[in-house]
Design a protein around this nucleic acid. Structure first.
Lengths: 93, 93
DNA sequence: ATATTTGGTTTATTTTATAAACTATTTTAT
DNA sequence: ATAAAATAGTTTATAAAATAAACCAAATAT
């Protein structure tokens, strides 16, 4: 039977961010932007949604006077991602 | 590297329809509705999109005077699905 | 007869994704 | 030194998508 797909993860850019973060200890905004090819605005919005869901932690600091945003996945995020992948498999075998 | 996800297939309901159709010779509207749990309106719209993309063939006939809509996947659809699954793997390993 | 269900489609509404515009700082070029 | 462009974002507006609500015609049940 087909399982439900977590709509927060079933989004290309958010999924991309999660799939990057699951493989590293942390990644900053610039790195995520380059890897995903997303616009800054879009990335900013999607990072926010992932954070509000508790799937990632976001640490905003300054390097000198330039802002620096570092993201890392939470345990909740890891769980949600695993479940999403599992659910996907009911569609793609 | 992360591949692009065909937006026509990266939709829960359309993906569900495709994943059902890939396993059967054909399926009618009522069957798809029961399997997916979708509302008739939503299903109607999404079937239309898949058809217009050439991913499925839709045959509208009457059984007595009641309409009967039968769907089957096309080769184009099978290809697109395979490529989508492949692309997905760049995200979920 | 009339109310309900079936098998849909069409249209309207809500949600989501994306892009465009903006802020602040920093670098680069003139 | 100053203007222009680039960096690192956020906020707001717009386009696109998903979904639901309203509808139609036929069939069935009350």
């Amino acid at each position: 039977m087909l399982r439900e797909l977590n709509p927060l993860l079933h989004s290309e850019l958010r999924l991309a961010v999660m799939s990057i973060l699951i493989g590293v200890e942390s990644a900053d905004f610039v790195f995520l932007r380059k890897q995903t090819g997303a616009t800054a605005g879009n990335l900013s919005v999607q990072i926010d949604k992932l954070q509000r869901a508790g799937y990632i932690e976001v640490e905003k600091s300054f390097r000198g006077k330039m802002p620096c945003t570092v993201c890392r996945m939470t345990d909740t995020g890891r769980e949600a991602f695993a479940e999403y992948v599992d659910a996907l498999k009911s569609y793609i075998g």
